[in-house]
Design a protein around this nucleic acid. Structure first.
Lengths: 343, 343
DNA sequence: TTGTATGCGTTATCAG
DNA sequence: CTGATAACGCATACAA
């Protein structure tokens, strides 16, 4: 019933050569004569031979596969990163095994183990862990398998391979921009500050306040999940504040736009009464009314750079064991949701 | 310099048992006594053993890996589908290797071969091919590896495993809704109609026109890439039309919102002068001004159902060789970008 | 230029 | 309950 696999042995038998010759011919090994190479290729095609990458990987201990772990993959930012990764990997002859941790450290750990057991050649992770040094990457380090952290990195792993932007600086600019127009009650809606990116954005927010001699009020920092639902809840909560904040720095666009929408429904004028800045530059941030001031986060570039860093490491593993930190440029995009005035 | 892999032989040696026993113990084979099982587990942990999935797959010819090919993964719709897939796969003990075809049939073919050589247990594809029966899936069929087409399916593959929505009906409803408010010049902006989904949406559009006794004008159907850029170009082109269309049915939200935005910039009132409907129900479609009437396309459900269909097939391969067609429910979401009137 | 022999790490078969 | 052994499909060191 089941068809047996067609192997190099089958085509060797059909051609009265050895399996070794077939193996070499199929890889265009120069030691094999053009003629036999041609014959073998042809026969392989004819017999519908398909190389078994598993066997090959086992033999060579090289899988040409990279593992990716992300918190979730259905955000515009993350899918853009992954698109860049897949492209760069594919161009270099690698494939991606992608897993989601769903913001669970346990799941992240399982994923890491799974990817290890699949003998990925490299690992890329945007961590969900709030541990300073999550232990589940140790096996990779021990075996000298390159690991690159992107976007979200564990707190004590700054000296490892990282591809990030300067979140503190970005948040500082966003907050500073709000303050420059004379605003005084700036609310900051962010994610879990146990996660570095949000912690750093909070620091940037604080720094901007302090620089402008505004007092920091921890009641003006809300940790949420930054989802659409969280935006709705936050908007409701904002409407109960008195006085209302006169500016909001939200740590992602999804949430920012949701909040803006609901505030407007409640009759709030944006940006006259409340200015808003987001983070990420999601495609629709430009098309909201008013368009959203935000931080341009170069997702595709991040994906490409992350993969390229891995591949660099793979090609020079013995030479350069040290971590490399890549910090990408971001941009503050000033749009209508804030008053362009100031400065 | 390099550490040797730790294998079941190492732990067997350390414990004075055979490798076979270790292998069985690690899989909780009931034939092994609780005591030895425990000892082996412990030792494995202590020695930092990590199973080699490659070797295991080679031996068992089961990889617990599913391949996915999509045109691109950085659209809200696709990343939602993939999120659903990854979740469902992970829940069933499978992993995903994801590849992009970038709307190239050649790349799609390469991807299929690659995934085949990686011995995926199943393949899920949203095809980019305009061939009626793309040949590159044949090896999977021949080897009885389940293939499920989702979203976009090749023209002659309706009898294979498919997970879709009724695009014709959806387009019909969208167009019909526009016509119901008395509009007469309905422009249809869509994708490559060599691809089934767009062809079907076009059919739905035509059917609605004909039903309303409106003539079909092929000049009122524009094939584009449906990207933001295409939206900008289309908007410009619309502004040169006289008379202007009084309604537009756009085949995705990204493009619809871009067009809406640019028309508004040119002083067009939406929906008074031009009504617009989109397709997909991207998250921000609700937050545009006016909010966008669109088709709710259940992406996550599609991902989950697709994976579940594959897994069903894997569990009953011999019993049910026939294709199964799953048609998901969609919904027409009427919002402010169209006049709610009519009927 | 080609062939022989062996091993990658695991699992399954067959004995004991 | 446990062990010896072969096999999965490929690639490479060594020989010819």
């Amino acid at each position: 019933m089941y068809k047996k696999e067609i192997t190099i042995y089958d085509i060797a038998a059909a051609l009265n050569v050895s399996a070794a010759t077939v193996s070499r011919a199929l890889k265009d090994h120069p030691a094999i004569s053009k003629k036999t190479r041609g014959k073998i290729r042809e026969k392989a095609l004819e017999m519908g031979y398909q190389t078994n990458a598993l066997a090959s990987s086992l033999r060579t201990s090289k899988s040409y596969t990279l593992g990716v772990i992300v918190p979730r993959l259905n955000s515009n930012f993350m899918s853009t990163v992954l698109a860049g990764m897949e492209k760069a990997a594919s161009d270099a002859g690698y494939h991606l095994i992608i897993m989601q941790s769903f913001e669970s450290e346990i799941k992240e750990k399982e994923n890491a183990q799974l990817l290890f057991s699949h003998r990925v050649d490299g690992l890329m992770v945007s961590t969900t862990s709030t541990s300073p040094e999550p232990a589940h990457f140790k096996p990779f380090f021990a075996k000298n398998i390159p690991v690159v952290f992107f976007d979200r990195i564990p707190q004590k792993y700054n000296q490892y391979n990282c591809v990030t932007i300067d979140n503190r600086e970005a948040a500082w600019q966003a907050t500073r921009h709000l303050l420059d127009t004379g605003k005084t009650r700036v609310l900051h809606i962010t994610g879990n500050t146990g996660i570095q990116v949000y912690k750093q954005r909070l620091e940037g927010y604080k720094a901007a306040l302090s620089e402008a001699n505004k007092p920091f009020d921890h009641q003006m920092v809300w940790e949420t999940g930054l989802s659409v639902e969280d935006g709705e809840i936050s908007a409701k909560r904002i409407m109960t504040m008195k006085p209302l904040p006169d500016a909001i720095f939200v740590a992602n666009d999804t949430c920012a736009i949701t909040i803006m929408h609901h505030l407007q429904k409640n009759g709030i004028k944006i940006p006259e009464q409340i200015e808003i800045t987001g983070f990420n530059n999601d495609p629709f941030s430009e098309f909201s009314k008013p368009s959203l001031t935000t931080i341009n986060y170069p997702g595709e570039e991040m994906g490409i750079k992350t993969v390229n860093l891995i591949i660099d490491k793979l090609n020079t593993k013995h030479i350069e064991p040290k971590g490399k930190q890549i910090v990408l440029k971001f941009g503050l995009l000033i749009r209508e949701s804030t008053n362009q005035a100031a400065k």
